[in-house]
Design a binder for these strands. Structure first.
Lengths: 367, 367
DNA sequence: AATATTTGTGTAAACGTTTCCTTAGCCGGA
DNA sequence: TCCGGCTAAGGAAACGTTTACACAAATATT
């Protein structure tokens, strides 16, 4: 009976409840939004009953215009489909809900123009806080948030210049690259390729730096580096893997899981086996890593911890807006698969363990 | 300089712009929200300039209390991490943004209580519309939305009793089960197992019904059915696969990708190969299906089309609230992998092609 | 030239809340 | 009996918009 639905277009307000309960609107408001205020239990009951009967639900928009709290947080990421972000989003949403917030999830799709539009829309909504994994232009967008006094946390993508001026939660890309490479070096590999991608964000470079640092520790120089780059796609992964065949490399660090997928398809297509023909480590934890016949060795970023950190940092900043910005950097760990084999080892250099640890800690405690 | 930030707590309003531009607040409002209203170009310019200078952004909450449109849509799913839903969410968000909406993504995590809380919060926000993939209790939640005149579309999970009373977009689970099974039957398999899961939602049963219908078409009876169920998890998938070893089955329909993963891990663990030892078809398109050494044959649901359909249906209902509810049912297609091998065929029954098509269409045009 | 029409701008009343402040009623102490 | 001090509840002024309406000025019609 759609006629019933359209009978009354207007939604039921605090005033309707007041009429029904025979009190003033102030009293109703106190019942629903001021738990401290003492009211005769009987009165409170009466209001609640009246509200339930006519199906009253407080209009959050109207509350927020007078009160300060909006009840909305936002998470803006550049690649929503990326499982790394998807998983963190799920966590953040669930934490936020426990605090009574609704979360708006937005996807800028790596497009700074979209990101700008999204942020303006969020500002228009007067959200209470924002977790932002910027596509590119950090400064102009954080400036927008600051001007409107919206607390925010930058997630995962740092832009070094401004590090300490923003709240930041991320993982140490340098350490990831370092860890992956070291793992292969420790298995005896000396010709290791790094498959990266072209990107204006510094994550890739940091991973490459980590890769280099690990090589250096093992006494290897520029001449031993093999770095290929392409766009961030499966197709490019395929091409880059193809580029690598014929090279002297015995191992590959796959810098990103999307690229890794394409590269693996190519290797399979060529009938190559791992770790037999090639040892592999992937940075990230694609769902398929554990399903592959010889399982892939992964560098796992602490997604859960990062999500918790980002959410709590944001919530703290909402309750105390004058808090100094802080930066929290997390480190990755190796998830052993079966894709790394021993190579014709030159020397094991056990002593380098010490210096590795030093490097790792140096970066990890950036805060 | 955090002191600058906290200098003025209040955000800039239409009034500030009016002062700055030397006009009335009405004029400013017209500039920002009533494109039809004619204003002297010079005046309009002046207002825009003033607004830009002091960084004015319209307060959407305040607009919505007087105006009708809120600018927020919501998508509520029961399994946000499920790639099927994740992908559709991404699409919906992007379509909605083109229409000027911000989308709130919510995850009920299969918990009806959570879902209720979420929906109440959304009603409080007075969202303009909602796409809902219900955890369980359809009726009470749609009743809530109806009472508050919030247009909605049910996504993917249908509850037959009430079919035509709601807007609905989903895929034909019966057809998916049928298609998967037929594909194996056509390859000559006659002992086919179905790995399902326990769930109060009818999706699984429909898939099983499709499985049965396909068997019947090939003249197979109850005695040829092998159906195992368990909870919806990788671990359960592992266990169910274990249950199946020793059975006479030469093929398996994996009813859900999460379960499929566990089952595959078990098969790998046992050193079984596909399609050699066992032919496999999975309902759904897990990312890893194409990465497995012999690629998995999948039943693909038209995620993109479904997302588009759900979003448009919602938008139509927002602009015309008295529209009659409609139901749109989509069908799946087979994505050929290499996991299905020919079996010791009895008879190929080419003539059954005709009746299959009939069944498929019978369900597909539920609308 | 007087009136009618159009055109551009501003006034002010909503919208559904929150919350400061007042008031009414009551009690106890002087 | 009067007054001060409570307590519980309501009146009314915000909050930042939108928009119906009034109005003044400019133009068009008689």
């Amino acid at each position: 009976m759609p006629s019933t639905v359209s009978k009354s277009r207007k939604s039921v307000t605090i005033k309707d409840v007041a009429n029904k309960a025979g009190t003033s609107i102030a009293t109703v408001s106190y019942v629903f939004s001021n738990a401290e205020r003492y009211l005769r239990p009987a009165l409170r009951e009466r209001v609640l009953k009246a509200a339930a009967e006519i199906g009253y639900v407080k209009n959050a928009a109207a509350s927020s215009i007078k009160g300060k709290r909006r009840g909305i947080l936002a998470v803006v990421v550049a690649q929503f489909g990326n499982t790394f972000f998807t998983r963190m989003c799920v966590e953040i949403v669930s934490i936020a809900r426990q605090e009574g917030y609704v979360v708006t999830l937005c996807n800028s799709d790596e497009d700074p123009a979209q990101e700008r539009i999204i942020l303006e829309r969020l500002v228009a909504q007067r959200i209470d806080g924002c977790i932002l994994s910027p596509a590119l232009s950090l400064e102009s967008n954080t400036a927008l948030l600051q001007r409107h006094h919206i607390p925010y946390v930058i997630l995962e993508r740092s832009f070094p210049a401004s590090a300490t001026r923003h709240n930041f939660v991320g993982h140490d890309n340098f350490q990831s690259g370092y860890l992956a490479t070291r793992h292969l070096l420790a298995a005896g590999h000396r010709r290791i390729a790094f498959v990266g991608w072209d990107s204006p964000i510094p994550n890739v470079c940091e991973r490459v730096d980590g890769y280099r640092a690990a090589l250096r520790e093992y006494g290897l120089t520029d001449k031993h580096e093999t770095i290929v780059n392409g766009e961030l796609s499966e197709a490019a992964g395929w091409r880059m893997a193809a580029q690598l065949t014929g090279s002297a490399c015995t191992a590959i660090v796959l810098g990103h899981h999307d690229i890794a997928k394409g590269a693996l398809l190519y290797l399979q297509h060529q009938g190559m086996r791992w770790p037999g023909d090639l040892s592999l480590v992937v940075i990230g934890t694609p769902e398929w890593a554990g399903v592959l016949s010889p399982r892939l060795t992964c560098i796992e970023r602490p997604e859960h911890q990062m999500a918790v950190a980002a959410a709590s940092l944001l919530l703290e900043n909402i309750s105390n807006p004058n808090k100094q910005p802080i930066q929290r950097m997390f480190t990755s760990t190796v998830i052993e698969g079966d894709s790394v084999g021993k190579s014709e080892t030159h020397d094991q250099r056990r002593q380098s363990l010490r210096s590795r640890t030093a490097v790792s800690q140096g970066k990890a405690s950036l805060r």
